[in-house]
């Protein structure tokens, strides 16, 4: 097993290393100047500059703040609403069409309205992230509630559960195994959207860093911001995956 754990780290790293070599070759033989297509070395130097002067940290924190806020809002609103709609069959008939109508509208389509309504600053970005993660969460929660074995509701009735107890002791724990993958996906989407959201209306964040570096023709910085986005994305994903290890959730994977 020790061997296996070791390989789990070594193999992915080897893939990254191979990618670096391909990247270096492509940059060297493309004939483009390093200002247009910076290789890994130039990018690493740029990365060091961004880390040393604190720019990267500052922008990452700004992005993370917006994603966290928007995502939490989506969880706080979307999950309870989804539980309610999923449990209340009439509500499902009423709202399903509306949800399916709003869902395919890209959060980016809301940019003009978001700017107009929320002005300049964090608010429109947070709003866009909220929209991006809200609908997948809402739909997954409703589906998860529909998938609950009706037996559990009979047990709840047999033991005289109040509506509040049915929600807290049956519905919520029952949907958790299905909800966690949904959280994982919607957090990923939120992180995707933050870059686009930060290209408007704000002067901080990794999205802004990309836009700003492009204007300064610093393609190495653009790539550094992309690398930072990817790395933070991996970390966020790992955090959610850890939740699967909670014992009262692990029954879902058996």
């Amino acid at each position: 097993m020790a061997d296996f754990r070791y390989m789990q780290i070594v193999l992915p790293l080897a893939v990254f290393l191979a990618l670096g070599i391909v990247w270096q070759c492509a940059a060297s033989f493309s004939g483009w100047s390093s200002a247009v297509f910076p290789g890994p070395v130039a990018t690493a130097v740029g990365m060091w500059e961004l880390i040393a002067n604190g720019t990267l940290l500052q922008h990452s924190v700004a992005s993370l703040f917006r994603v966290t806020l928007g995502f939490y809002l989506a969880v706080i609103v979307g999950v309870p609403l989804g539980m309610l709609i999923g449990w209340w069959k009439t509500g499902q008939v009423m709202f399903n069409a509306l949800i399916q109508f709003l869902r395919p509208i890209s959060p980016l389509a809301w940019i003009p309205l978001a700017l107009l309504w929320f002005g300049i600053g964090d608010k429109p970005a947070v709003f866009l992230i909220f929209l991006a993660s809200f609908f997948p969460l809402l739909v997954s929660t409703i589906t998860a509630v529909n998938h609950i074995n009706s037996l559990y509701f009979q047990v709840a009735a047999n033991f005289n559960f109040s509506p509040l107890e049915t929600v807290s002791k049956v519905i919520f724990p029952a949907i958790l195994p299905e909800l966690l993958p949904a959280l994982r996906i919607s957090l990923g989407v939120a992180w995707l959207v933050v870059v686009a959201a930060e290209m408007i209306a704000v002067k901080s964040g990794l999205g802004y860093l990309i836009l700003d570096s492009r204007n300064a023709l610093r393609m190495d910085y653009v790539m550094d911001a992309m690398i930072a986005i990817g790395l933070i994305g991996i970390c966020l994903d790992r955090i959610i995956v850890q939740l699967n290890r909670i014992e009262s959730v692990s029954w879902g994977s058996v």
């Binding site: 037996l151 009979q154 047999n158 005289n160 002791k169 724990p173 029952a174 958790l176 009262s248 029954w251």
Partner: peptide, 20 residues
Amino acid sequence: KGPSSENIFVFQHNGLLPWM
């Protein structure tokens, strides 16, 4: 008139709440 905790049902299978 409806289910009551005076009469308990033991189900065919999986009647336990799996998260408890």
